[in-house]
Design a binder for these strands. Structure first.
Length: 492
RNA sequence: GGCGGCGUAGCCAAGUGGCUAAGGCGACGGUUUGCAAAACCGUUAUUCCCCGGUUCGAAUCCGGGCGCCGCCUCCA
């Protein structure tokens, strides 16, 4: 049994079968770059990162496209609001493209910290204006759109499948309309695909309908089509975007192409902070940079970016995740537990005796791998996959305690940690400071001098002095651990 | 008001018809230690929000209630 994925379109878990054998085209709605990335982004993009990593683990050749929205995303009512980036630019007194560039870099920095693999293609909406204009033209030609006073709207009533993703009914939506409706629209549910720009609007481009800018939903249709084709395997995004964003994408794309837009829709759930929706007004809005540094009043300490990643993996991507200091703390402890086991294995490889890979250990690794894959195949059940990792850690500790464990066995253990914990889950690193990078040799030498002094004191039963040395080293951020085979150290 | 999701131990969280209800954190007890730390072992839900029903059997299915959350308007 291969990977089973929950498809929001069919509301069922389905066997994943790509359109073309061995190849997967995946598009994920990227950020609108008008502010620093926050905990919500972490959950979303770590979740899709896991999907990409696991598909690659299974041997698929994945093309991962994630856009950067740098124009067209309006601040409020579907079509009357201001462009988010333009608004931020005015506030910061910068050019909108400077704002977009700044936060794009910030976004990539944060995602790198979370160990998310970079998308293969990160297209910018503003770099695809011509393609967007072409799509608007096509929709006008095919009668799915109409122009009014320099703006172009999609005529929702013409697209009979509208509502199939979000389970909405057009008539009910029209009846339930409560926001002020633009008088330009034929119908309240119609949405803008091209907006006329006022003369003072900085972000605007010439089009057959005059100066203007694209509607938000358009970019994803255009860029996914351009880089992945008319029909793609997977489209990912946050649940809150099912409607209207993804519904509109489907309408535009399928109306223009007469082909299905997406085979599998994958939606991840939302984040709350201390049980409440995260919002700037609630004082619980935490950016990733704040979480990494611990500089937020809701946080008692700083957290390792990978501990945040681990917290995301601790629950299912389709379940809501509540970030709290307690939850982060627990994730950090669990992350440390896995990390230190991996470090111990890598350290011990250097001194372990040569020999064959132990048969029982090899079998244990096979069983763990099988359990892990079974969990991941079940709609990416990372919670269970993590439980397998903890089982793996426990088994590993037993091997570490046994002095007969061979170098080759430990290498096999390390190999599986790197594969499952590293390649797939992204919580095990390739390198750790403690395992002997060049920079660290000096540090190691210095700490060893202190350890010698302390052990000298211990030998003479001068425990007061020994504890004093240990305390001072601890204050400097280094923890000493006395073990049967000597004293080792690690950074806090 | 409409649509959707959720309610499992002190906390986080799997499990969705049947062996002893995963795992993590925390707490407590033990082994180890000069003391610690780390590691290991053990304990920590007779019960899955409540009330009914279906069934030989339900945390899991159905009905009702209560509570929380999301979307419906920008959001990952």
């Amino acid at each position: 049994m291969g990977l089973q994925l929950y498809n929001s379109l069919t509301r069922r878990q389905e066997e994943f079968e790509p359109l073309e054998e061995g190849r997967v085209g995946m598009y994920v709605c990227g950020p609108t770059v008008y502010g620093h990335a926050h905990l919500g982004h972490a959950k979303s993009y770590v979740s899709f990162d896991i999907l990409v990593r696991y598909l690659r683990y299974l041997g698929y050749n994945v093309t991962y496209v994630q856009n950067i929205t740098d124009v067209g995303h309006l601040t409020d009512d579907a079509d009357e609001g201001e462009d988010k980036i333009a608004k931020e630019a005015r506030k910061e007194k910068k050019h909108p493209m400077a704002v977009a560039e700044y936060y794009t870099r910030s976004y990539f920095e944060d995602m790198d910290m979370l160990n998310c693999v970079r998308p293969d293609i990160s297209p910018r909406a503003s770099g695809h204006i011509t393609e967007q204009i072409e799509l608007v033209k096509t929709l006008l030609e095919k009668g799915y759109a109409y122009e009014v006073n320099g703006s172009v709207y999609f005529d929702v009533l013409k697209f009979k499948d509208y509502g199939k993703l979000s389970g909405r009914n057009i008539d009910e939506m029209i009846a339930g309309t409560r926001v002020e409706v633009s008088p330009e629209k034929k119908n309240p549910v119609d949405f803008a695909i091209w907006k006329k720009a006022e003369p003072n609007h900085i972000m605007q481009w010439p089009s057959p309908w005059g100066m203007g800018y694209p509607g938000w939903h358009l970019e994803c249709s255009v860029m996914s089509m351009k880089y992945l084709g008319m029909t793609i395997d997977i489209h990912g995004g946050g649940m809150e975007n099912k409607f209207p964003h993804h519904e509109c994408e489907i309408a535009q794309s399928e109306a223009a192409n007469d082909a299905p837009f997406v085979k599998y829709w994958v939606h991840n759930n939302m984040v709350t902070v201390d049980g409440q929706k995260m919002g700037k007004s609630l004082n619980n809005f935490i950016t990733l940079k704040q979480a990494f540094s611990g500089s937020h009043e809701r946080l008692t300490r700083q957290y390792d970016p990978l501990a945040i990643r681990q917290l995301v993996l601790n629950s299912h991507y389709r379940s809501p995740l509540d970030f709290s200091d307690a939850a982060l703390y627990a994730a950090q402890s669990g992350f440390d537990k896995i990390t230190s086991a991996v470090i111990e294995v890598r350290k011990k490889i250097k001194s372990a005796p040569d020999g064959e890979v132990d048969k029982e250990a090899a079998k244990m690794l096979d069983v763990l791998k099988e359990k892990f894959e079974k969990a991941m195949n079940d709609d990416l059940n990372t919670s269970v996959a993590l439980a397998v990792m903890f089982e793996f850690v426990r088994d590993t500790q037993k091997l570490l305690e046994d002095s007969k464990t061979t170098k080759q066995t430990l290498e096999a253990v390390d190999g599986l940690f790197s594969l499952l914990g590293g390649d797939v889950l992204g919580i095990v690193k390739d390198e750790y400071e403690q395992t002997g990078s060049v920079d660290n040799e000096l540090m190691d030498k210095l700490v060893r001098i202190l350890i010698e002094q302390r052990n000298e004191a211990r030998k003479q039963k001068d425990y007061k002095r020994a504890d004093e040395i240990r305390k001072k080293i601890d204050e400097a951020g280094v923890v000493l651990e006395d073990k049967p085979d000597g004293t080792s150290w690690r950074t806090k």
